[in-house]
Nucleic acid binder design. Structure first.
Lengths: 216, 216
DNA sequence: ACGATTTTTTAGCATGACTAAAAAATACAG
DNA sequence: CTGTATTTTTTAGTCATGCTAAAAAATCGT
């Protein structure tokens, strides 16, 4: 008997099979050739593409390899059209009390990973050092700022840009006397509306505090 | 007998276990709570994190869910620092004969997915309709252009932006009498230097005989 | 019609994904 | 330090499913 598996699956791969199939078609390959190249059997490819079985991570990796894409591309949550434009009717908003204001540029559609805002930082404003997953890019629309990445300091002025791995500790500072406008573009979801929350209350089940000195 | 699997694995999950573990630590969770929330056993979590076993896609999905990230984040190919900045010393280049010129903004580091250029399109220039994987964003630095996405036409002028799924057929046209400067940002690798080619010659191996024969 | 190629289906084996429970760390209190 | 409580690792064992081989069924070209 199958145990009472929770009703997980909410983030389930969706139609991975379809993705694989369309990609294969895109390359004009036959199941046979894909199977051979990936070291699998034809029948299995068929089963996977039709969603009857799901491949192991290893097999998926082989397939992604053969199909010349990243393994990720098959696990995205649905393509779907999604909304599109945005004009100069952008909702400029600023956090209460904060002196920075934002103009959201990017939209959110199923599968979207890139987010973008124009950030207006007043003179003297500092963004504390931070490190997180993903990558980001700045393009200075107006004004100038100081960017520090893992100790390295750079001064960026109008027209300059920088692109880096967000895991590297980074901070910014508007050292000038004018407001700086920065076009920010990155993979971090700063709007927090991308994936459905779902939120199981995991936190509440552990031992309250902790807050040890932490390792590292 | 394991067959002689090709030397695939090049796209292999790397250290999926580590990724899972550090993410769990990041949330300050215990294996027990994660196991419970995901409907799995503690021991199994331990095994997975230590790379002794690899989870099925279904389990991975549950875990990603519990750990509040996308399933993708565990399959990325290595973090690694990578180079960083870029100033107004950008290599402006233009394709032979073409009247468009580019200034590359983004850098390429292991794991990077976002690419970015400033495109200068002369008056009258047209970019043919195209559709491909990924998403992209335009921000009009100067001038104005007409963008058409799946039939919908939009005129974007300085300061406007648009963000859409690249799978939707899109084209642009500089309908004005001045050169338009567009900051392009997207997930498509327009520089073609991101992942190693690898390219196995799959096409050439079909035809001839084969079919069963050696069964591997 | 035919054979040739590609895909689907069936039946079945064997690996490994997963569990339960005990052992080993790690931590914490007195 | 000793004991108890918590978290992690290990072990042993099961059952499910990822996967193969081969036959059946489409699809296609001539």
């Amino acid at each position: 008997m199958l145990k009472n598996r929770r009703e997980n699956n909410e983030t389930k791969p969706i139609d991975l099979g379809d993705a694989l199939r369309s990609r294969r078609k895109e390359l004009g390959l036959t199941m046979q050739s894909v199977a051979d190249a990936a070291g699998l059997s034809v029948g299995f490819i068929s089963q996977v593409e039709r969603g009857i079985t799901s491949p192991s991570l290893a097999s998926l990796a082989s397939l992604a390899d053969v199909l010349q894409t990243e393994i990720n591309s098959f696990l995205q949550t649905q393509p779907a059209p999604g909304q599109t434009t945005h004009k100069i009717s952008r909702l400029a908003y600023s956090v209460a009390g904060a002196d920075v204001s934002y103009e959201r540029l990017s939209t959110t559609f199923p599968g979207s990973k890139v987010h973008s805002v124009i950030v207006h930082e007043p003179p003297g404003h500092r963004a504390e050092p931070i490190s997180h997953r993903g990558e980001e890019m700045f393009y200075i629309i107006d004004g100038e700022i100081t960017v520090e990445i893992e100790g390295e300091v750079e001064i960026l002025t109008k027209g300059d840009s920088i692109h880096f791995d967000s895991r590297r500790v980074h901070s910014t500072w508007n050292h000038s006397t004018d407001t700086a406008s920065i076009l920010w573009c990155g993979t971090m979801d700063i709007f927090g509306d991308a994936p459905a929350p779902i939120h199981k209350e995991i936190n509440s089940m552990q031992s309250t505090d902790n807050s040890n000195g932490d390792s590292n």
